[in-house]
Design a protein around this nucleic acid. Structure first.
Lengths: 195, 195
DNA sequence: AGTTTCAGTTGACGATGTCATCTCTTGAGT
DNA sequence: ACTCAAGAGATGACATCGTCAACTGAAACT
């Protein structure tokens, strides 16, 4: 026996799932309200009962992705037996993995929605705060802020370059995203693994 | 007296200009073939005489932007009286400036078009090769490849984070894109300006 | 002069986001 | 038990979009 509120919440969730799946499989163009509705078992008008418009639905998808990444960051930070440098590496690669395996979702997470330009930035807060805390375990707080911003920026850029196929260019000598992350983390952690 | 070929070339250029202007002022959604045609003084069907479809037109706009950036990179590299580190800084900030003042165009430059995923990567080659040459003036070739890829990736990520408003978050302590670039360049150039 | 080529126009079509309207079930108030 | 407001969802309609086919007319070629 499901109440009406439960049913509505289930539909909302189904809409988010459908949108995310369509985004993954066919890119942003494949995410039409009609297709989302059909996959969620409703019709094209139903999403308007749960979201203001299509953009709001997409923002909600991006927000959910940031939340799950935040969970992973949080778990990673609490992981015992890992050095701060290893946690940094893991956190950055978690971000890059999203770019690798769910590139369209990744782009959505870093897009700047015309309606509410700060909506996704708010959603990203927890992930970034968790990562900042990891960096703060390695260097003092002043530097941690700058380094964390630099690391997240770089990871974002690496993922972007990789996604656009530009990292595969032979002029870079076949360097991988992992190589770049390691180079950067080593420089900051001062460990020089390649020495 | 203008020949037919000249007229057609002028129209093609007007279409590219119109598309770029609409992109700058109203984002990707504002770039409709009807609006582009109207601004270029033709009708909606005319672009199909010069481009395969809308996507090809957008790729051409992005390609032209990469070419312009390539020119700036080339001029910067030839600039006398600038250290390699200063040229690196200048080149990266030139890229970031595109993200700042023409954010929609910037996104287009790093987008991965579904039709020809390598089209924009090819257009980016000269800019990146010029920058690679600058880095190679500072470190040996082996390292230069990795560092150049890292620097361009990072600049790209910094621009992306700035564009999505996430860099302005107080948790980063008010760090600017210039600060991050300087931090990175200093680490690689080993000059430690902040020492 | 006759013919071809081709830039640009126009009409049409299917798809899409969105709104107004309608239906019908749920759940609260009496 | 009856009434009725509320709200989830369906449906019809509309403007706009990218795209194609057919058409027009002038320039370029033979």
């Amino acid at each position: 026996m499901i109440s009406r509120a439960e049913s509505a919440a289930a539909t909302r969730r189904a809409l988010l799932d459908a949108a995310a799946e369509l985004l993954d499989s066919g890119g942003l163009d494949a995410v039409t309200l009609r297709a989302v509705g059909a996959r969620a078992g409703v019709t094209r008008g139903a999403p308007y009962r749960h979201f203001l418009d299509k953009e709001s639905l997409l923002i909600a998808v991006g927000t959910r992705a940031w939340d799950t990444l935040g969970d992973r960051m949080q778990a990673l930070r609490a992981e015992p037996g890992l050095s701060a440098a290893e946690k940094m590496r893991g956190g950055l690669l978690a971000l890059i993995d999203v770019g690798r395996f769910r590139p369209h979702l990744y782009k959505l997470m870093f897009s700047n929605p015309p309606g509410d330009p700060t909506a996704l930035a708010r959603a990203a807060q927890r992930s970034q705060t968790e990562f900042l805390a990891v960096v703060a375990d390695l260097v003092d707080e002043q530097d941690a802020r700058r380094y964390a911003a630099l690391l997240i920026s770089s990871a974002n850029g690496i993922a972007g370059l990789e996604a656009s196929g530009q990292l595969a260019d032979p002029k870079w000598g076949g360097v991988s995203a992992e190589d770049l992350i390691d180079t950067l983390v080593d420089m900051i952690a001062g460990k020089s693994r390649h020495a």
